[in-house]
Amino acid sequence: MSPELIRLIIEATGDTLLMVAIAAGLGTALGLPLGVFLATSKKGELFAAPAVNAVLGALVNATRSTPFIILVVAIIPFTRLIAGTSIGTFAATVPLTVAATPFIARLIEGAIREVDQGLVEAARSMGATPLQIVRKVLVPEALPAIVLGLTLALVSLLGFSAMVGAVGGGGLGDLGIRYGYQRFMPDVMAIVVAVLIVLVQTVQSVGDRLSRRLNKRLRHA
């Protein structure tokens, strides 16, 4: 394999990691508060706002039910507004973030809802404010599940990132399609797949290990 191809593969891996990292970072920054709010704003809950909850929930569902490749195309005007352009690796992080945020929000909502309500009651009985309950009880107690959720989100984002080649996004998926498929270079395709497998395995095992380390429920005396 030519040094040129190796350079391309390294570059594509870098692009993929960059896109996924930015989308995951922004997606978490936006998805965490959104997920916490979704988990605490139904009737009778800490930040009860059932109407807002319903609207946000519907918005999250709408985004999540749109196939990613369609989402990428559908929000091109928005992408252009944010990134100044709608093509290229940097621009591709916009649809990736838009897809990641509601996904992460739902995962975090699920993790928070798993926290024993008795702990919320205990914190209330100590005079905690709703924000203190979120910061000191809900998020720390849900952390092992949140980490697992974020791991799942990262793996999904690796998959999504392969599609942004459609808008000139670069990365491993794009390399695989352009060289492996369109130029009939099966060795490039194989390497792209292999690198993706290694990335997914690494992300998953690091995530699993981190979650297990954070989970203090499994310890035995």
Binding site: D116, G127, L143, K216
Partner: peptide
């Protein structure tokens, strides 16, 4: 909230934070 800080409470299932 102010009052609750002057009232302790314990529970059947302890409700301790596992983390």
């Amino acid at each position: 909230r102010e009052r609750r800080r002057a009232t302790g409470m314990i529970f059947q299932h302890f409700n301790l934070l596992s983390s």
